[in-house]
Simulated scan of single mutants.
Amino acid sequence: MMLHIPEVLTADELNTCRRLLAEAGWIDGRETAGAQAAQVKRNFQLPENGDITQQLQQIVLGALNRHPLFFSAALPKKILPPYFNCYTGEMNTFGNHVDNAIRTAANGQFRVRADVSCTLFFSHPHEYDGGELVVEDTFGEKRVKLPAGDMILYPSSSVHRVEPVTKGARTASFFWTQSMIREDERRRLLYDLDLNIMALREQYNETAEIVNLTSTYHNLLRMWAET
């Protein structure tokens, strides 16, 4: 499943993140890439344990924790603390690659199986040329360039790349989630069911049929979830 999640950040949070990113000291993004990805990765990244990185992580994780659409789609068990990157100048692209299946937190205290990948945009689309995230999967090839504050969610098993930024700078956060539901197909079914239940509840309030559908949702979650 590939999903555009709008307005993950409030206007104030976005402004704060953009200010912090403008003050940041960037390093070569290849320092955190796997062996295959390092061959095609040409961008900047924030140090994993830097003060600005930690401030940004708190803002992003706080926004995710309150966002019902993210929870419904990802059904997160663990979230790797977000990373932050910048594409500009000669450090402006990331070729085709697949994310490592297992990611380790910067402090080494826990590992995350990468089920769901996310990119949260900080730059407005008019501020840079190029820089589209291109994701290739069973749903075909999708090209993504979202408004600042919006996020794209997609399976971590997908081949993807970032097209060269030919003008300006593209800044974003990226991170991985281990889902309570390992299989993407099951996550999609639960997400579709959850959205339809919410729409029916808004239209008809709490009917017996909606209660039964809600029971079905939770029983499927109970059957499939890893907690």
Rank of each mutant, 00 (worst) to 15 (best):
E141Q: 15
R143I: 07
E202I: 03
D12I: 09
S123Q: 05
T10C: 13
G25W: 04
R66W: 09
Q109H: 12
T104M: 13
E132P: 01
H160D: 03
E90L: 15
G149N: 04
R103W: 04
V8D: 00
E226S: 14
L120I: 05
N212L: 14
T10A: 09
I59L: 09
D99K: 01
F70C: 01
T207D: 12
Q58L: 15
E31M: 10
Y217D: 01
T104G: 07
A33W: 02
R161F: 06
T104E: 14
W26V: 00
Q45V: 00
R66K: 15
T88R: 11
F110W: 14
A225V: 07
N96C: 09
I5D: 04
L133P: 00
A63M: 06
R42S: 13
A172I: 08
F121A: 05
Q45Y: 00
R42Y: 14
Q109T: 11
I152H: 00
N92S: 12
P47K: 03
N205G: 08
G34S: 10
N65C: 08
I79F: 06
Y87M: 10
E141W: 05
Q203R: 15
G29I: 00
H218I: 06
N15S: 15
S158Y: 03
E136M: 07
A199G: 07
M198N: 10
G89C: 07
R222Y: 15
M2S: 08
R143Q: 12
R222M: 10
I27F: 03
F139G: 11
L14E: 03
Y204D: 10
A105F: 04
A73M: 06
T177V: 15
A38I: 05
Q54K: 14
Q109M: 15
K142A: 09
M2H: 08
K77L: 14
S123N: 07
P81C: 07
A208R: 13
L200K: 12
P155C: 07
T177H: 01
T227F: 15
R201D: 06
E127R: 05
F121N: 01
L213Q: 10
K41S: 03
P147W: 02
E127F: 03
M1Y: 05
P125A: 06
E141K: 14
P81N: 08
